[in-house]
Amino acid sequence: MSKILIGRYISGNSLVYKMDPRGKLLATIFFILIVFMANNPLSYLIVTVFSLVAVAATKLKPKIFWDGVKPLIWLILFTSFLQLFFTVGGKVYWRWTIFAVSSYGIENAIFIFIRFTVIILISTVMTVTTMPLEIADAIEWILTPLKLIKVPVDKIALVMSIALRFVPTLFDETFKIMNAQRSRGADFNNGGLITRAKAVTPLLVPLFISSLETAIDLSTAMESRGYRGDDGRTKFRVLKWSKYDLVNLGYFAILIVLLLVFRTH
């Protein structure tokens, strides 16, 4: 069971894997922002090519990325069709009551489609090549400046890493309870909405109780291992920038420059 649970991380050994998670996280966030700089066919082509190269650089099967896009495909198509039928302007090819297909509409629909897809692709590249734990480390690093306004970043980081560490444990626990209740006749998959909601009770109540017990046990163990919660803790896990991150940075810089040059002003 726990195989699905290590997030969507898929182990691999290509260039993208060697990059620092902080760089990847920042690049992903900024990529989503700069995609909106693209505003003509050429700039969209550039964005698409850059995304596909990033996808190819992971050396993972294309199916993984298709799996990333799949859950959102209806949203993408729906938005694109809205653009297609409701954009007014340019040459009108077809008209029926309030619906119209125009050259602007077609262009906009394609742009929206590309925008959605590349954002999903790049986020998938990030999540698939970075362990959840590394993502947590990266978030902690990004939050560090908040220490200045007295945000307890260390504690938030500990909470994040404990939460991540318990995701598989709680999943296993959930399946165990489900099976135990099934063996006593509980039915989780049939009936109407209300019946099903009621069926969840014998699952949720034990799960809550066991989570609280786990929390108590864990806090006892942490305290007896010398955890005081105040400053003065050192860190074993560190992130290091490497030459691969220059590749990340350079790639991103080139993309921005190209977009700035080729977008219409």
């Binding site: 734990l133 890493s161 404990i162 991540l164 560490r165 786990t214 864990l218 006892t220 163990a221 291992r225």
Partner: peptide, 11 residues
């Protein structure tokens, strides 16, 4: 402690 699952802090 007794329960091996509930005293493992690190990832």
């Amino acid at each position: 402690f007794q329960n091996p699952d509930n005293q493992f802090v690190g990832a």
